[in-house]
Each structure stands twice: as structure tokens, then as C-alpha cells.
């Protein structure tokens, strides 16, 4: 546990430094074409530092907002609140804030930077489908992520690297759907700018798989098994989580509207925007979760 916490804090520092270096490099290259002097470099590094600060201090709020999670009171959701409070007592951490996501899919995640600043969010579908013991299993798993500071790395990854990935998607799409075609006819409307947009998009597109790889390195599949085990240690009842995972596997065909590649690794189970079993190609690239059948098998062996 303590090794996990220390490792996650180290990873966070590495991630932030890597992001500053990468963005700095991109900024430097753009600056070389666009302006004289180190304007691009300085600007990009400043941007990266601001992004790092924002993702450290408000990453949880950004993640929660991106999933349209809303805070719920103990009066609205007494069962959920009781379970979160009970398991926080067992884990010896302050009670995290409790959110509900308006989605039919069965999923949950935790975010924040420390146990003192943490939030747990579950989907409406999950609340409906799970009985008390199963919900305890799910919350136990999420609280294990909180205790181990997985949430810190996960949230930084989601906002920092996620922002870069989203920017690249934005650039490529805007070039594909608008800029690409328009630049053929409307050369007068700033051909230079659209060339830069294209160049930035291309660079980021090349970088995107590298980022995907980084995400996978940062949030190893092992940590899901670990959180399953630690969660079961909190509830002292592995079959609860196993049964919950079985339900989640069955419900995996329900698409999740608020899923995106930047936050995929945070969820209890790999979310998909696409109806049915399959994942999109980008979604596969960012696949961060071990197969659910294997997780169930390990829980049953405990």
C-alpha cells in the first residue's frame, strides 16, 4: 500500500515533467515557423505549467463535469451514502464526496488528488442494478483507488494527457471536415493559418498513440486487480464484487454517452460509446482494463 502511494506520487511528477517537455517541444517547433525567438517555447511551457496546476487542483472537477456527474445528498441516496461512509470508516479515510452520473450504463469511478480531496461517482444504471452487497463491492474497489492515490495519477492523466489528445482530435476533425476541404477553394482566407493547424494536428496525431501508450504505462492493468483485492479486503466479502462485475459485464452492451478516451482509464470497467460488444479503434488504442472475466476469476479464488 505505502509502496503504491509512493509510486503513484512519483508517476505524477514524471507525467507533469513529460507533459511540460513535450508541449515545450511542440511549441518550439511551431514557434520556429511562426515567430522569431523563443516565443513558442516559452508560451508552450507556460501553458503546460498552467495545465499542470489546473489538473492537479481542479482535475477532479473537470472530470466530474465531463461526465455530467451531479452531487447527491444523503436524503436523496441514503443507501449509497451509507455504504460510502461505512467503507471509508473501514479504510480509515475521510468520506469522499458522492456523485451520480445520469447514464444507463453500469459503471463507476473515483477522482481527486488525495483522500481528503476525493469524490466517488456511480451511474444511475449501476444504482438500479446492484443490491447492497454488490454496491459495497464496487465502492470498496473505488475507495481502494482513493487510498492508493491511483486517483491522483488517473485524474492528472485524464486532464493533462487527455487535453492533448482531445486537442489533437479537434485539430484533425476540423481539418478533415472543414479546413481540409475549405483550404482547396478559399486560399485567400489565411492559407498559412490552416497550414499551421494542419501541421499541429499532424504532429499531435503522430503523438496520440505515444500518449495512449503513456496512459497504459501510467495506469497499469495490474492496479485494477490490486484495487479489486484491496476492495475485497475492505468489505471482507469478495463474492459481492465478483457478482457486481458479472452484472457489469452483462450490462456492457449499454453505450455510455459521456465516455471518452481521456477518462476511459478512470472507470470501473472500460466504457464504450458504441452500442454492442465492440469498441471503436481509438477506444481500443486507449484500452486500459484487464478482461472482466479474469477479474471475476481472481476474486472467486480469494
Amino acid at each position: 500500500m505505502y509502496e503504491q502511494i509512493a509510486a503513484n506520487k512519483r508517476k505524477t511528477v514524471v507525467l507533469i515533467v513529460a507533459a511540460i517537455l513535450l508541449l515545450g517541444a511542440v511549441g518550439y517547433v511551431i514557434g520556429m515557423f511562426y515567430a522569431s525567438g523563443p516565443v513558442g517555447l516559452v508560451g508552450a511551457v507556460a501553458l503546460a505549467i498552467v495545465m499542470s496546476l489546473v489538473s492537479y487542483f481542479s482535475g477532479d472537477k473537470i472530470v466530474l463535469a465531463s461526465t455530467r456527474a451531479r452531487p447527491v445528498t444523503a436524503q436523496e441516496q441514503p443507501r449509497l451514502h451509507n455504504i460510502v461512509e461505512g467503507l471509508s470508516i473501514a479504510a480509515g479515510i475521510p468520506k469522499p464526496k458522492v456523485y451520480v452520473i445520469p447514464e444507463r450504463a453500469l459503471n463507476a469511478f473515483a477522482t481527486g488528488r488525495s483522500p481528503e480531496h476525493s469524490s466517488v461517482a456511480v451511474t444511475e444504471g449501476l444504482l438500479e442494478a446492484m443490491n447492497r452487497v454488490e454496491l459495497e463491492g464496487v465502492i470498496g474497489h473505488e475507495l481502494a483507488h482513493v487510498v492508493d492515490r491511483d486517483i491522483l495519477v488517473g485524474t492528472i492523466v485524464a486532464t493533462l494527457i487527455g487535453a492533448v489528445v482531445l486537442i489533437s482530435e479537434f485539430f484533425m476533425r476540423s481539418w478533415w471536415w472543414g479546413g481540409g476541404r475549405r483550404s482547396g477553394g478559399g486560399r485567400d482566407s489565411g492559407g498559412g493559418a490552416s497550414a499551421i493547424v494542419f501541421a499541429v494536428g499532424l504532429v499531435l496525431l503522430v503523438l496520440a498513440p505515444i500518449f495512449g501508450q503513456l496512459v497504459r504505462l501510467a495506469v497499469s492493468r495490474n492496479r485494477e486487480y490490486l484495487a479489486d483485492a484491496q476492495g475485497a479486503l475492505l468489505t471482507r466479502y469478495p463474492p459481492g464484487l465478483a457478482s457486481a462485475l458479472r452484472k457489469i459485464a452483462e450490462g456492457a452492451v449499454i453505450p455510455m454517452r459521456s465516455a471518452n478516451n481521456a477518462t476511459a482509464h478512470l472507470w470501473m470497467n472500460q466504457p464504450s460509446r458504441i452500442e454492442g460488444e465492440g469498441m471503436g479503434s481509438m477506444e481500443k488504442l486507449f484500452s486500459t482494463h484487464p478482461p472482466i472475466a479474469e477479474r471475476i476469476r481472481r476474486l472467486e479464488e480469494m
Partner: peptide, 24 residues
């Protein structure tokens, strides 16, 4: 129903606080 939920919530919190105490 509300009381029942409060009670089972409290019962499990008692169990969890014992568990935490014994762990420590």
C-alpha cells in the same frame, strides 16, 4: 423504509468501525 435503511447502514458502519479498530 427510511429507518430500515438507516439501521442497516448503521449496523454495517458498526461492523466496519470494529474492523478498522481491530486492523489498527
Amino acid at each position: 423504509l427510511a429507518l430500515q435503511e438507516e439501521l442497516s447502514g448503521t449496523e454495517s458502519k458498526i461492523a466496519y468501525s470494529r474492523q478498522f479498530y481491530n486492523d489498527q
